[in-house]
């Protein structure tokens, strides 16, 4: 009996955005795949037999029951075990800021995948700047919805920070998409200085330079 498993929920338009970047039959690794919504979408729409990594047993079990191959683990510990260029695309959606070593994670993504797709909340968004400036409190926003004492987000960064890190790990930025709070892209031509203020989150497509 096939279970009815939800596909990408409406609130995650950023996942649909990612899905549209993936070619038919591509080899995909989704790091922090959650309940597998993106991987299932890719299987149905793109014929992708993807792989996933997620920390929670419940999420892994939902994925396994849906016929996906998903390993309970995390970006810090598991990416190092995949061979070079094992995937066409490695996806890290809204997870980079919660990893112990974002630089190592990004390096491994570029090693094991031909392309890396990374999305993250932008800590330089004007609402965040305003909350610190006006109230002197740690910001809580729609994209970063945790209080300071219970947040898993230990390595928050800004769009400018990420651009710099991408350069340091030898990544070429193929696309840089500033996203609104719902994950809908702004104009791609927005300069970084403006995007870094206006966009609550961003999505980057990287390849390895060489």
């Amino acid at each position: 009996m096939a279970r009815q498993i939800p596909l990408i929920p409406e609130a995650r338009v950023d996942l649909l955005l990612i899905a549209d970047m993936i070619e038919q039959g591509a080899r995909v690794l989704d790091v922090g795949c959650g309940d597998g919504a993106l991987l299932r979408h890719l299987r149905l729409q793109r014929g992708v037999e993807g792989r996933g990594v997620d920390m929670s047993w419940a999420n892994v079990n939902t994925c396994v029951a849906g016929g996906l191959s998903v390993v309970q683990g995390n970006a810090d510990h598991d990416l190092g075990t995949y061979p070079d260029q094992a995937f066409d695309v490695v996806i890290l959606s809204q997870t980079l800021q919660a990893t112990a070593n974002p630089r190592d994670v990004l390096t491994h993504m570029l090693r094991i995948g031909k392309r890396a797709i990374v999305s993250f909340p932008n800590f330089a968004h004007w609402r965040i700047r305003w909350q610190i400036l006006a109230w002197g409190r740690m910001p809580v926003t729609e994209t970063i919805g945790y209080r300071w004492y219970d947040t898993p987000n230990i390595h928050l960064c800004t769009i400018r920070d990420f651009v710099e890190l991408a350069g340091e790990v030898g990544a070429r930025i193929e696309r840089a998409l500033p996203l609104d709070r719902l994950g809908r892209p702004f104009r791609e031509t927005l300069p970084v200085s403006i995007a870094n203020i206006m966009a609550p989150q961003a999505l980057f497509v990287l390849t390895k330079t060489s």
């Binding site: 047993w57 892994v60 996906l68 191959s69 390993v71 309970q72 683990g73 075990t81 061979p83």
Partner: peptide
Amino acid sequence: SRQTVHALNAANAAVSFVELA
């Protein structure tokens, strides 16, 4: 078990893994 999983990853196998509490 993780060592097995990592070897299967390295072999590009279709592998799932859970550690049950």
